[in-house]
Simulated assay, not measured.
Amino acid sequence: MKDWAPPLIASALFAFLSPGVILQMPGRYRPVDFMSMKTSGASIFVHAVLFGLLLMLFLVILQAHLYI
């Protein structure tokens, strides 16, 4: 029996936190830009930190498991 939570959570977070796809923090002209399809080095760093923190929250602190 395999635990499917880590790859599913990581894939969903990667899709939602890709800079410029849904939102970009910090934006080019505002603190948050929506659907800009552009990115910068600062936004890549912020999104990478958010990805790591949320992944640790779900997998280590909350211990999410999904057995199929």
Rank of each mutant, 00 (worst) to 15 (best):
M1I: 05
W4L: 02
A5N: 02
A5K: 02
P7L: 05
L8R: 06
I9E: 04
I9P: 03
S11G: 15
S11I: 07
A12G: 15
A15V: 11
A15F: 13
L17M: 13
L17H: 06
P19R: 12
I22S: 15
L23D: 13
Q24C: 15
P26D: 09
G27V: 12
R28A: 14
Y29L: 13
Y29D: 10
R30T: 07
V32Y: 11
D33S: 10
D33P: 10
F34Q: 05
F34Y: 06
M35N: 14
M35K: 13
M35V: 07
S36R: 04
S36I: 03
K38H: 03
T39L: 11
S40T: 00
S40R: 07
G41H: 10
G41A: 07
S43I: 00
F45Y: 10
V46D: 12
V46S: 15
V46R: 10
V46T: 12
H47T: 01
V49G: 10
F51Y: 08
L54A: 05
M56G: 02
M56Y: 08
F58Q: 03
F58P: 04
L59G: 00
V60Q: 09
I61P: 02
Q63Y: 07
H65P: 02
H65Y: 10
L66R: 12
Y67Q: 11
Y67S: 12
I68G: 13
